[in-house]
Design a protein around this nucleic acid. Structure first.
Length: 309
DNA sequence: ATCCAGGCTCCTG
DNA sequence: CAGGAGCATGGA
């Protein structure tokens, strides 16, 4: 089975893949050349799906297992925001403009599920990204179901049911801190108990959804905002407390250090209602060597060749 | 060794 | 209610 999914222009699948290639330790969103592959849960068990660029869109197919065509379409469409309008981003803004222009067509690449976004955000709290990826890799390889195809192993993200069964000492063993362990097991249990429901959050406006998520221990403002932005497709939510954003804004404003969270929020006011799109592009730019100190603030170079990281 | 990294909780004043 | 200490863990 193979289906064509049209994308609203501008859209660049290759840029999305570039974002996904940011770590060698990424084991969920696998990129082989120009192919995106991902294992996920289907109605009849694990499946492996693939997506590649096509003329004015994306082609999606199932490589292993079975999945209803509509489910496949929805998933890929959601992960790559194929139907989002990217023509109204703030092109004239001094900070956002270069990001809008240089990364035209880049969607806010979504995680396969909101749950995955939340766990990933917790893993990323207060540690460097490279190490966060290592933690995720060990976590996924140890506790995720696997799908073998073409001599390669693909992983599903661990489920809440599986996570609450894990001996917490085993998580310490793979270098999870006590807090991360507690937070991740906690939200897994909350999902099982129906206390935390992403479909419920889906129905709420940004403010209320953020408040709902923040009721969980370990989910502060940054994490909640991250989940809305990367897992629930909300375009106007920005994790302004983020170190990367604060650093980028600090460079932009010519400060000796990072900008404050408030300064990021203030600057982002003019990006409404696409603050999330700009924040994501800022991360992408950061990933590609923008925002180096010493450069004239508003001048942003053409992104350096990626793939090295 | 020292400081920092895609924060959070909890306790002060 | 804002601000900060304390936390927890590895990497540069």
């Amino acid at each position: 089975m193979e289906i064509f999914l049209p994308a609203r222009e501008p859209f660049r699948f290759d840029l999305a893949l570039k974002y996904l290639k940011r770590s060698h330790d990424e084991v969920l969103d696998v990129v082989h050349g120009d192919r995106y592959r991902r294992a996920m849960q289907g109605p009849d068990g694990p499946v492996l799906v693939e997506a590649t660029a096509a003329e004015a869109g994306v082609t999606a197919r199932v490589l292993a297992g079975t999945l209803p065509e509509e489910t496949l379409a929805c998933q890929i469409q959601r992960q790559f925001q194929l139907d989002y309008d990217r023509t109204q981003l703030p092109a004239d803004d001094p900070f956002a403009g270069p990001l809008v222009e240089q990364f035209q067509g880049l969607p806010v690449v979504q995680t396969a599920t909101p749950f995955e976004a939340m766990v990933w955000a917790i893993l990323g709290q207060q540690i460097n990204i490279a190490f966060a990826y290592k933690l995720k890799r060990r976590f996924v390889e140890n506790y995720g179901e696997q799908v073998d195809h073409d001599g390669h192993t693909y992983y599903l993200f661990p489920t809440p049911d599986r996570i609450v069964m894990i001996d917490t000492d085993d998580l310490r063993e793979i270098q999870f801190s006590r807090q991360k362990t507690r937070y991740i097991v906690g939200i897994s249990q909350a999902i099982i108990d129906g206390e935390l429901d992403f479909e419920e959050a889906e129905q709420l406006d940004d403010e209320d959804a953020l408040a709902l998520l923040q009721k969980q221990i370990g989910i502060g403002r940054w994490t909640a905002e991250y989940v809305l932005m990367r897992g629930l497709g909300r375009r106007d939510v920005i994790p302004a407390g983020d170190m990367g954003l604060r650093s980028a804004v600090g460079v932009f404003q010519g400060l000796p250090g990072n900008a404050s969270e408030q300064a990021v929020r203030d600057l982002a006011e003019s990006w409404r209602p696409y603050r999330g799109d700009i924040a994501f592009r800022c991360w992408f730019g950061f990933q590609h060597g923008m925002y180096k100190r010493g450069k004239q603030a508003a001048v942003v170079e053409q992104p350096a060749d990626p793939g090295s990281y």
